[in-house]
Each structure stands twice: as structure tokens, then as C-alpha cells.
């Protein structure tokens, strides 16, 4: 029995308490404009539709929202990810007009959202 083990075992557990989602809102008519506040309101109402007042009351943030492309980055606690994602999936209309949310990427690391390997173009 050595007094000191000659190696050290490091286990990396996912240290991140958040998940980040990169999403894309698609509206049927493209002339509609909405800002970040409207966008968050839309997500909250989708959550409330699916989970009710209490189920929808978990924190999430819109880190970035681009008005011209309707792309957003969301941050949510791991425990709320399934709820938020399913609410986004079942979101089908905005002001009684069909819409869809395309989830481009989901990752526990914000840095991962900076690039998408599927859209990588190799010369």
C-alpha cells in the first residue's frame, strides 16, 4: 500500500447548470416584425398553454435575439430544458397565424453555438 497513489483520477461531471438553445422562428408571412420582448412573451405564452401557471414558472433567458433573422439564443436551467423544448415544439401559431420554431442547436456550452458543423463548408 503506497502512501500516495501514483495517479489521480479526475472525473468531469457536466459542470454546467444551464443548457443553451439556438432557435429560429419561422412565420408564414414574412412581413411581421417582432422584438425581443414580444418574442419572450410568445415563448412564455407557449409554456403557459402547455404547462399552466405553475408549470411555466421556471426561469429562462433570451440571451440574444436578432430581429431581422428571428434567431435567438436561450439559456435555461437543465431541469427546465425538456419543458421549454417541448413547449417550443408544440408552438404552432403566433397571433393566429401559423409559425414554427426550428431548434438549430442545443448544448450545455455556449461556445458550441458559435459554429454549426453541419453548415461547415470545406473547400
Amino acid at each position: 500500500m503506497g502512501e500516495h497513489a501514483s495517479y489521480e483520477r479526475l472525473v468531469f461531471k457536466n459542470a454546467s447548470v444551464y443548457h443553451y438553445m439556438k432557435i429560429d422562428l419561422i412565420l408564414e408571412s414574412e412581413d411581421k416584425r417582432l422584438n425581443a420582448a414580444h418574442f419572450k412573451q410568445l415563448i412564455i405564452s407557449a409554456l403557459r398553454d402547455l404547462y399552466g401557471e405553475i408549470g411555466a414558472a421556471f426561469p429562462f433567458d433570451v440571451l440574444k435575439f436578432e430581429e431581422d433573422t428571428l434567431t435567438a439564443v436561450l439559456r435555461v436551467y437543465n431541469s427546465g430544458l425538456v419543458k421549454l423544448w417541448s413547449a417550443l415544439t408544440l408552438l404552432g401559431s403566433y397571433h393566429s397565424e401559423p409559425c414554427a420554431v426550428r431548434v438549430t442547436q442545443v448544448s450545455p456550452f455556449l461556445l458550441a453555438l458559435s459554429g454549426n458543423s453541419r453548415e461547415l463548408e470545406l473547400d
Binding site: 419561422i26 423544448w85 415544439t89 404552432g92 431548434v103
Partner: peptide, 11 residues
């Protein structure tokens, strides 16, 4: 617009 991605459906 009614279609959803496969990972969305898995969720």
C-alpha cells in the same frame, strides 16, 4: 410549417 425536427420529436 407543421413539421418538426427529429430531435424535437424525440424530446
Amino acid at each position: 410549417l407543421e413539421l418538426r425536427g427529429p430531435y424535437d420529436i424525440a424530446n
